Amino acid sequence: MNDEYAESAEFIDLLISPFWNDLAPALTEAIKTAAPGPVVDVGAGSGCGTAVIAEAIPEAEIFAVEPSAGLRTALLARVNADDSLRERVTVLPDKLLAADLPEQLGLVVAMNVIGHFSPTERQAFWELLAARLAPDGRAVLNLQPPSEPVDIPEAVAATRQVGRRRYEVRARARATSDTTLTWHMTYRTYQAETLVDERALNYTWHLVSESVLRGELARAGLRLHTTEPTDLGMFTITRAPA
């Protein structure tokens, strides 16, 4: 299985953590009244979201699904360092559609991940939700911009100082079809002002607009609801009324 994060896994937790300053309170609000039952964290990465879920729902059993071996190393380290997480979190080394999940789920969380799913994989995801969400269960996801096929010029996406070293990621994107972008990421490590390491990688991102998402969910018997604050692009998904 191709690991898109093989070159960047060691930097992801460092550079994505600041974005959770906004995401964490919004996600907590969206899930704190979730239905009882197992929780799935889709594309759990290094576990930032897993920790938020565990704090918001203190009794929940959580299945953290992460196919990248590098990211899973950070995820398992985070889980192992916390007694409560170690008791409640099962880490699964699979893609979501191949993961061994419970038959009924109270909550599914998919943050910063839906663009990794092709249209066919998204449809299978919605079918999984329709089949396994508890009657009063929900899913929570976010749509990251852009939703249209546009080129995005390179910019520094995040930077972090650790000891004497500064870590930086630069990102740019090129529209490769009507429904996909290719992201070009460059991870750099500096000691003082000296560049001591550089990694570059590319990956495909499938574009999803709110209207496309709403239509796909309706065909699967699901409903989409906006979640505040709207600038985070976060939504909840529930079963449509019978």
Rank of each mutant, 00 (worst) to 15 (best):
G215E: 14
Q144N: 13
L143G: 10
T230F: 03
D83P: 06
L195C: 15
E87L: 11
G37M: 04
L195G: 11
P229M: 07
T204P: 08
L101S: 09
P38T: 05
A44D: 07
R214K: 12
P93C: 11
R219K: 13
R122E: 13
V108M: 08
T176W: 00
D136H: 10
A175T: 13
S8E: 14
P36R: 10
V196W: 11
P58T: 05
S17N: 10
R239G: 08
A44Y: 02
P241G: 08
L224C: 11
G106V: 08
K95Y: 15
W126F: 15
Y5R: 06
T238Y: 05
A155K: 13
T180S: 12
A98H: 14
I16M: 15
E210G: 04
V150N: 03
L23W: 02
A30H: 06
V89I: 09
T238W: 05
R223A: 14
G215C: 02
D41V: 01
A240I: 00
S177I: 09
E103R: 13
E4F: 10
G47C: 05
A44Q: 04
S46M: 04
A139W: 06
A131W: 02
E198F: 03
T159M: 09
T186N: 10
R239M: 07
S68C: 12
K95W: 10
Q123G: 09
L143Y: 07
F117W: 09
D83H: 03
A130S: 15
T73M: 06
G43V: 01
T73V: 14
T186K: 10
L97A: 10
F125W: 14
L27V: 08
I53L: 02
R86T: 01
H206F: 15
A60S: 15
H206R: 15
F63R: 03
D178P: 11
M234E: 09
R165Y: 10
V108C: 05
A44V: 02
A200M: 11
D82V: 06
V40Y: 09
A242K: 09
A124V: 01
A200Q: 15
Y203V: 00
T176R: 09
L133F: 11
R239P: 00
A139F: 07
